[in-house]
């Protein structure tokens, strides 16, 4: 086995992160931990693409995987934002602090009349 180049090191590290993230994403109890596990999986998958870009030729790096990973990052942040919003909403419903189950305003037609209590600060 020749001396492992950076592509093999980071490739295996990426796969390790993917395995870790995958396992915790499915078995973690805390919703926040599952969301982070997913992001770690995404990072692991991105490693493969960036390593593929690097392997092409050390001089001329291939730009396509870079664009793909940037797209992946933006997609991941929007998915996480939705997940975190859901976590906040579920927790608020659980704690019963929230006063209405979420569909008080009929779409966006009439101006909101959210009867949420005045902020406690």
């Amino acid at each position: 086995m020749s001396v492992p180049g950076p592509d093999l090191i980071y490739g295996v590290a990426g796969l390790g992160m993917f395995g870790l993230g995958l396992h915790h994403a499915m078995t973690a109890a805390a919703p926040l931990r599952r969301v982070l596990a997913l992001k770690i999986c995404a990072i692991g998958a991105s490693f493969l693409l960036i390593v593929a870009a690097w392997r092409v030729a050390p001089g001329a790096i291939d730009a396509v995987p870079h664009a793909l990973v940037i797209t992946g990052i933006v997609v991941m942040v929007s998915a996480m934002a939705v997940a975190l919003a859901l976590i906040r909403r579920i927790r608020a419903l659980q704690d019963g602090e929230d006063t209405q189950p979420g569909h008080t305003q009929a779409g966006d037609t009439q101006p909101g009349h959210t009867r949420n209590r005045e902020g406690r600060q």
């Binding site: 909403r89 608020a92 979420g102 569909h103 305003q105 949420n116 406690r120």
Partner: peptide
């Protein structure tokens, strides 16, 4: 989703 969230938070 967040429509109903109390402003407190």
């Amino acid at each position: 989703v967040d429509r109903g969230l109390a402003a407190a938070h």
